[in-house]
Design a binder for these strands. Structure first.
Lengths: 211, 211, 211, 211
DNA sequence: GATGAATGAGACTTCATTCAT
DNA sequence: TATGAATGAAGTCTCATTCAT
């Protein structure tokens, strides 16, 4: 049971986090100043430090929030009574949209982890959420495997694989010239490999046959 | 024909870049100071600015250097007389190792691009190299398609796809707890999807059959 | 109507500017560091940047302040009901004292303008004040011309002329060994030329008569 | 008797000084780097320090050179057999041109003197030249006074006065918007005051007559 | 004698965090 | 509780001067 005080505090924290996320989706964590966040949240700069211990902590909560939201979406859009193929389809779309919007957060997360500037406690929280997401994804695969619709591989492996594919797609999108707009093409590409793999069946290894 | 002066300058630039890369592979670009690089290269701080116009330029050259090295490796390890499957195998391994070692550079590159803090000229150079890498990869696929070893898809699409897959693999590796060590498992995973895709053949879309 | 906040801010700005002017009257703008100003104003270095965008801006305000003060003095000491000669006398004294005290600022202003290191906006403000000073001076001359006390020349021309005379006096004073102290002599000199010019009346041009 | 060595050294010094002056007439001393001068003189940066002890010393010699040249011009253009009025005319023109071209040097000289960054020895040399210039100017006035063409004032006083007038003219020209081009107008203005002064003859001091 | 690579002090400026009100 | 003024460490970059070749 949480007190009114507590609830009010949580509400304000959420307001700040929303404002932060609005900024983080346009500029990198490093390029957004604490003052920017304060202004966007319509609070004083000092006030933020009553709710969060550091800029990193705001970031951490911001990431938590969007990951939570992603998990909720997956649960809603990939229910058990949907065919595995349709669920997979939705999974891909949800992940794609997620990274398209909040992908910026991950390079910064990496950086902080790498530089040790992210409190271990804060990171653990995020890691838990990422695991939950993987778990939800794996459940979709499990159903598909059970129904003999997907290849009989480890469901967690497949879950992580799908995730990688989408991350890679987005990140290369960032690296390369703007691929904005051709979402359909991007998704089509993912579905192609998801359906067929790359190598034709029946092919054998070894030196080139016609050489 | 370049003068001795020119060659000496290039050599020193390379020394600085090597030192920078040593640091960039341990800490992020943002966490490494110009003074750090100078010390690592055993030069004075000011000396660096005789060779590079800014910290960003050092970064850019560092990235260029490793990308160039990657291209050279691909050319060497995936020659035209190797079977496409073996070449693909090598491609995966080379890319994997590359991102494992220098993947740190990309989050920072992304950040700079996002924040517009990377000079357009510097970025163009890097983009050219990334394109060259894609082109080299596509050539491998082309040979495989011609020999009817790979699925008959657009070779550039496939090249970009493979790249994404590896990036995603590494980046999630960074995100998650250290997956260091199980390189074999990671590669195995990639090869699985490359061979089979995820969805079994002959499957149809729609509501679950047994629901 | 300005808020308390606004007024406090202006007050603090003024404190900083006063401190800066104290330093600028002893050393050149270039030789005074931002940290020096901060220390003199008893503020932290960073605090200054909450009030001014750059060192140049501090300089600009410092100059503005003293020019404003000069204009106010002229208005007070040269009212319309004073005889033009007395007003001219006061003008000369006020300008002389002004350049004696704040003349240092002008070489730096020149330098910045020459090197283009002074923001156009900042400069415009100063230029406006300089024009206002000229205008006030011209008014004194106008009255004198109307009363047939001064020669019937363009009042603005005369205003600028007087200004030049004083500037020159002070600047040469700077160039040469310290002429400090003989203020009376300097002023006397100016008044001499103001009264008589240099060339005797009735003189003609050409080769020397007694040669 | 100076050796060939000595003469060669002096020649090279002169080359450097010329190059420096070319730059100093376009940008301020502070904005011109030692490297700029070296490049303009087509010498290596280090070489300059074989001829001059410091950047300030180069500046000092540069100023010396142009002052010397000015003195020579005065001697040539204002010979004893020219009428005082014509000589005065030439004096004004020569000084005007001089400050127009090399006036930039004086603000910097002031700054150095003020900040104590100019070696006393170097300054003495310059001061001597300035005195010589004043002396030459005074000689013109002396002849005019003797011939009863100029007012019977102290010739040195008049000399310094004329100098101030021109300095002031130029410096205000710098301060204000570009007055470039209307050289004729500027000179006309000086001649006006030189001829007439400002105050009409026969005027008395005191309260305004018609008030 | 000539060179320019190397140096490092020091300049300006930013920004996360603290703290008095 | 809310604030934003104050802080100062730390960052990047410049440039006069030195020195080994």
């Amino acid at each position: 049971m949480i007190s009114r005080r507590e609830r009010e505090k949580d509400f304000k924290k959420q307001l700040i986090v929303e404002a932060a996320n609005r900024l983080f989706s346009k500029r990198s964590f490093e390029a957004v100043t604490v003052e920017d966040i304060a202004r966007a949240a319509e609070f004083g700069k000092g006030t933020l430090y009553q709710y969060f211990g550091s800029k990193e902590e705001i970031f951490s909560y911001a990431l938590e929030t969007v990951l939570n939201r992603l998990c909720a979406s997956i649960e809603k859009e990939c229910p058990a009574d949907l065919t595995p193929r349709a669920a997979l389809n939705n999974l891909i779309t949800l992940n794609y949209r997620f990274y398209k919007k909040y992908g910026h957060l991950f390079p910064s997360l990496l950086r902080m982890k790498l530089d040790g500037s992210l409190n271990i406690g804060l990171y653990t929280e995020i890691e838990t959420l990422i695991k939950r997401r993987t778990s939800l994804t794996a459940q979709v695969f499990e159903r598909g495997i059970r129904d003999k619709v997907f290849i009989a591989a480890d469901s967690y492996k497949l879950a992580r694989l799908l995730n990688k594919l989408v991350i890679g797609l987005i990140f290369e999108g960032f690296e390369m010239k703007a691929t904005d707009g051709n979402v359909e093409k991007d998704l089509e590409l993912i579905k192609l490999i998801v359906s067929n793999g790359i190598i034709l069946k029946g092919e054998t290894n070894g030196r080139n046959a016609n050489s």
